[in-house]
Amino acid sequence: MNAFKLWYHKLGSPPYFYVFAGYIQPWLWTIAIVLALLGLYGGLVLAPPDALQGDAFRIIFVHVPAAWMSLFVYGVMAVSAFIAVIWRPKMAEVLAMESAPIGAAFTLIALITGSLWGKPMWGTYWTWDARLTSELVLFFIYLGIIGLYHAFDDPRQGARAASFLAMIGAVNLPIVHYSVVWWNTLHQGTTVRYFGPSSIAPSMLWPLLLMTIAAKFYYGASLMGRSRVALLDRERGKDWVADEVRGGDVHG
């Protein structure tokens, strides 16, 4: 317990986190790439075509992990944001703010692949389906958080304000989802159901799970990289950054 506490406090200090993140980042990348290659091979080559959708369904190996990650990243960001607003540790601010663009990217990927999938499924790239609409609103929430963060001159102040917005968004998100579902059932005419009660075949399931885990490791790797850059920028006046930059310089 004590060792854990010590480790936690150490991790909260930017120079220590910088070194730690630099150490684990290659591992995260390696795992993410290996799992993604395996998952893509399983999904695109090994899995048989779907009885109804043919090869079009294969986009789920990108779409579903991206859609899951869009919410998972929001969850991580909201927790960091909560910590950042209440206790104000620097690292929580950095992690929350560097998560936001990654989450926004996953959301955008989910939206694009979802609409690409929609063309063969629904005959149109966009329909006001409850899930797609919720995902679109989630994208706007991410953009608002990123925009607010950059609207402040002082990154710490911006991070705290944007963190507060992320907390508001976390409360709002389920409300948006349920209101959109209700709205969608209200206007039955435009609803298209794309998931029947079919269960997913194991040959599709394991590549999907691999892709999901790969996406989580990619998030971790990307977050570490982004946080390292953000730390160098924020702490540019500090000695450890000067040491770090000089140490990396060949001419020393």
């Binding site: 608002g144 925009g147 607010l148 609207a151 402040f152 304000a161 507060f164 948006v176 959109v180």
Partner: peptide
């Protein structure tokens, strides 16, 4: 939340939209 920033009109619309969606729906 945007009080400390200089110009915020567009940003405010972006921030308000997700909150306005359920209100408009109901």
């Amino acid at each position: 939340l945007t009080a400390g920033t200089r110009r915020s009109g567009m940003l405010l619309s972006l921030m308000l939209l997700p909150l306005a969606v359920p209100i408009v729906i109901f």
